[in-house]
Design a protein around this nucleic acid. Structure first.
Lengths: 182, 182
DNA sequence: GCTTCTAAGGCAATCCCTTTGCTTTAAGAT
DNA sequence: ATCTTAAAGCAAAGGGATTGCCTTAGAAGC
């Protein structure tokens, strides 16, 4: 039984807020469950019971922060829309903060649902860009193809090869998928 | 000063061995530093001083296990070699054990060097396949292209979208990169 | 070979994170 | 208004993480 307006919701909000505040103040390495609990005004056992451990809590907070805040900007053409989305995506994800969120999201995620949520966010944004282009009458690649050809290489490099990532790489990947897919 | 034949090497071996044994016996969730230390015949502080924490130790062990044991089999043609390598790669990485090792490798890896090593292993194997094909006179894609178009999508799905991964996907990715790249 | 030097491991005490049984509270149902 | 029951609070115990100090063993110089 979910009680979205009640005490549970208040606790969830204050705990998430405490994580964000303490991360900003002292860095994520300084985070501990008792610290977060004290800041949030709850007892540690509440956090342990609801989230299991620190990593799962951080994973929750990370996914929340990786949620896109607005649909991709409309620049008038598929090529422009997709290219600028990919540049922005790379930029956000490859930043130190972005990398930290990705790691956290993957880390405390026993069943993969948080990671799946991240992927779903990207798919939504891409789908918005492609649908808009289709409405304009442009021929578009499949969402799956954009994920395989643009999102995957970017994420792979972020996770496994921390060097050589820049906007030009995002542009090249986008140009290639548009050449092949429409 | 490295002392490869001495006590350090013995400790390293016995600790790694203890991790493997205990993982097999009791599962990775049951692992703790004191447990591993006891099995390895060392004190916990030794492990903390050498590896920092449990996650970094597990990351070390994971990378060791992700090292390929032999060069890819020679089946006579680039298409056959690359396809069967990709199928094997997907199979090993997507297995429960493979996923666990990937997670561990990424997890306890503050500077990204362990993850980089994993990527280097894959690049080596691919390079071996491509060089062999080039020696036969076949036209081959670049290693980078195979990583972007075959390895990345597979790893992305393993990490972010745990469903719908099978040998057919590996074959499709390989076929596409061979069509485009030679 | 013997002495010297030093990186690495052992030991032990301390701190505090984690876990858990029991109690209390508050949101929703009747 | 009363009842029910998730969920939070409390507190104690257990044990993992950390660190200063000491000991050991391998390597280098004589």
């Amino acid at each position: 039984m979910v009680r979205p307006g009640g005490r549970s919701a208040r606790v969830q909000r204050s705990v998430h807020e405490a994580v964000r505040d303490l991360t900003a103040e002292s860095g994520r390495d300084a985070l501990t469950v008792p610290l977060i609990a004290a800041r949030a005004g709850v007892t540690p056992s509440t956090i342990y019971r609801r989230w299991g451990d620190l990593q799962e809590l951080l994973s929750d907070v990370a996914v929340e922060r990786l949620r896109p805040e607005a649909p991709p900007e409309d620049r008038g053409s598929l090529a422009d829309d997709l290219t600028s989305w990919a540049e922005l995506f790379l930029d956000e994800m490859a930043s130190p903060a972005g990398r930290a969120y990705i790691r956290d999201a993957l880390l405390g995620d026993p069943d993969g649902s948080n990671a799946g949520q991240c992927s779903a966010y990207a798919a939504e944004q891409i789908d918005a860009v492609l649908s808009r282009a289709a409405d304009r009458g442009e021929k578009t690649p499949e969402v799956e193809m954009v994920i395989d050809r643009v999102v995957s290489p970017i994420m792979y490099r972020i996770l496994f090869r921390p060097t050589g990532l820049d906007a030009a790489y995002a542009r090249r990947l986008t140009a290639e998928v548009l050449d092949d897919g429409r």
